[in-house]
Every structure is written in C-alpha cells, then in structure tokens.
C-alpha cells in the first residue's frame, strides 16, 4: 500500500514532528519500506485467533492506596522552562 505525501504529512502531524516539506518524500519512502515489510502478515489466517498484548499472563496488579513522597523540584536540574514553581510555555490559545 503506497503512502503518499499527503498521508505522510498527516502522520507527521498526528505524531507532532515538524517534518519540513523537503523531507516528506524521504519519510514517505521509509514508511513505505516498513509497511512493505509487514505485508507478509496478510498471508496468515487469523480469523479466530485471539490477540496477545502482554506475555506475562498477569492480571489484577494494583498498588495499595497509600501516599508516599513526591519529587522535590527545588532540586530539579532540567529547569529551562521552570519558573517560580511553574513550567512556563507560550500561551496556549
């Protein structure tokens, strides 16, 4: 299935990566290569096959409702946008 420029742009927008127009073809081609590789799955009949999302077989894993300590952001080193206790960005319209 051929992915064209239009679809590639839409996908880039979905995933919020600002791919410049000049590079769209490059990513379209990579996307197509990856999709070609997965086409083989159509050869397999999976009509009544259940899905496997996780391999561990675990169920009902919960944490008890007890509060514990939070991070102290006074010591936060990644504070490029951290000012007066808030993470600050340009106004969201």
């Amino acid at each position: 299935m051929a992915v064209n420029r239009d679809i590639t742009e839409k996908v880039a927008d979905l995933i919020k990566i600002a791919i410049p127009s000049s590079e769209i073809d490059h990513y379209a081609s990579q996307l197509n290569t990856a999709l070609d590789q997965v086409d083989v799955l159509q050869e397999i009949n999976t009509e009544s096959t259940p899905i496997t999302a996780q391999t561990h077989g675990l169920t009902n894993i919960f944490g008890e409702d007890h509060a514990s300590e939070s991070l102290d952001l006074d010591d936060y080193h990644n504070n490029k946008n951290f000012r007066k206790g808030y993470f600050v960005v340009k106004k969201v319209i």
Binding site: V3, I7, T8, V11, A12, L14, I15, I17, I19, Y27, Q30, L31, A34, L35, V38, L41, Q42, I44, T46, T49, P50, I51, T52, A53
Partner: peptide, 28 residues
C-alpha cells in the same frame, strides 16, 4: 522519527485492525 511515524500510522483509525490487531493475533 520514522519509527514513530510508522507506529502512528498502524495505530490510526482505519488501519488499526489491518496492522496492529493483525500483528497481535500473529503474535499469539
């Protein structure tokens, strides 16, 4: 970038069953 894009594509509306669900079935 390109792996994120593939991932977004195969999960997106209209393609989920043909790709993601199919893959999970073959995983079984």
């Amino acid at each position: 970038r390109q792996r994120s894009m593939t991932g977004a594509y195969v999960l997106s509306a209209g393609y989920y069953d043909a790709y993601y669900k199919k893959a999970q079935q073959v995983r079984t």
